[in-house]
Write a protein that binds this DNA or RNA. Sequence first.
RNA 1: GGUCCUGUGGCCGAGUGGCUAGGCAGAGCUCUGCAAAAGCUCGUACAGCGGUUCGAAUCCGCUCGGGACCUCCA
Length: 497
Amino acid sequence: MSQLKIYNSLTRQKEVFTPITPGHVGMYVCGPTVSGESHLGHARPYITFDVVYRYLTHLGNKVRYVRNITDAGHFEEEGREAEDKISKKAVLEKLEPMELVQKYTNLFHWAMEKFNNIPPSIEPTATGHIVEQIGMIEQIIEAGYAYVSNGSVYFDVKKYAASHDYGKLSGRVIEDLLETTRELEGQEEKRDTADFALWKNAAPEHIMRWKSPWGIGFPGWHIECSAMATKYLGAQFDIHGGGMDLLFPHHESEIAQSTICNHVAPVRYWVHNNMITINGRKMGKSYNNVIKLTELFSGDHPLLAKAFHPMVIRFFILQTQYRSTLDFSNEALQAAEKGLKRLWDAWEKLKALEYVQEGTVDENLDKKVLQLVQELEEFMNDDFNTAKVLANLFELVPVINSMKDKLIAAGALKEETFSFLKKQLQLYIEDILGLQGVSEADNDRLQGVMQLLIDIRKEAKGKKDFATSDKIRNQLAQLGISLKDEKGGEMSWSVEG
RNA sequence: GGUCCUGUGGCCGAGUGGCUAGGCAGAGCUCUGCAAAAGCUCGUACAGCGGUUCGAAUCCGCUCGGGACCUCCA
């Protein structure tokens, strides 16, 4: 049995994964900022780390999966016009900030459920942990690595860098950071442009504001993750995940803050997913090329040829290794849609198949199937290579279909191979990859009606009354239900997306 | 400008020295009342140039292209 290896952004290589406490894994993933709707790009980390969570659990670990909700808002822009992002938007929409936060949190949860993502063990909110954040900032000040300036608190990067490696994670060179001159106003509060805010004083018009030892204000950009991760996972924990775009400054700063407070590197394995691109460009607000999840599911977007089921998105994302960029296009999504259907149909067929001892065992086939199935674990252990897992699953599809259609004798596989195949596919397709069928036919009445139509059509076909049998099939097709004749006179149907 | 990543067949995308990735689309065949599905077969791809090597998509160099981060960002 191979060992799980994870690519660690910190060391830039794959490392054997060893939890700090055997049998237990602490995992923190940067969650959404609920000042707006999630888009396709946001789907990637949550699906990626859902699979990581599922796989670690499958390996027998008790995993505490913490994913925050950023509801305190960050700055839209640094400097004079600095405004709390959430309060600013709330003014525009004439909503209470918390009403807005609730709305987008609900939408986020709804999307997560559609993706079949398992909810995290703890989903802490930034606003619910102001006390912890203030406490952490006080510790940093006491340690001498932060200073108060005009009601704000800044982390002293230069001082930290003198004794620590600031830039280790992101590959930044501290000298370059210190040299960078920016023409942003408000910088005069800082001793150095590379310093980052731990606490910001709030202008009177800010709606979201809290009391602190330094006056009325709100927490800085990076402190919430440090505070909540420390609280729920301890001073040092196993995995910290997030998008690659968070490497700097967010995660780099998290390391600095936590290291000062807890005197230990906070994270053992930093794991980062790559971006989803559209026309080769990162999907993001600043590029004006986002497709929101609600638009994706409804098809209501000029760039979309049609609506796409959340499972299709999940499958689309899992077809790529998480550290590669993934380019969006209608063509690619439609390919994913058909691929998922093919895989799922075969899986459903296998589920319904029972082992029969007939014919002789085809040793070569048996060996091939066994290998394909056994490799699934190997691929997952190789830095969660879901792309390779899916490739193997697809290689098994013709075998399953051939068994179903009796092109391969039911006994061509050894009984133990057959049951192993069934068991592992259940495990990998449903439990680990978390895939589901896209059919919306889970409706008893529809099932009954369809069975009736199938019976009538069978009778008609038996009498060579093709006019009737074609009428049933054609009219169902118009309703978006496809009826297929199978070998042996059986019929199957499915609702087309 | 600095740091880093990347360029695979019509599209998406695995793959870091020699063994068919896979999916979608396309072509042919089989099965079939027809259709669909399914099965079989096929395209023989690795930006360009040069180098290392018995052998490179895979290592090195250069050229060209794309991108990320350096600012909120999954």
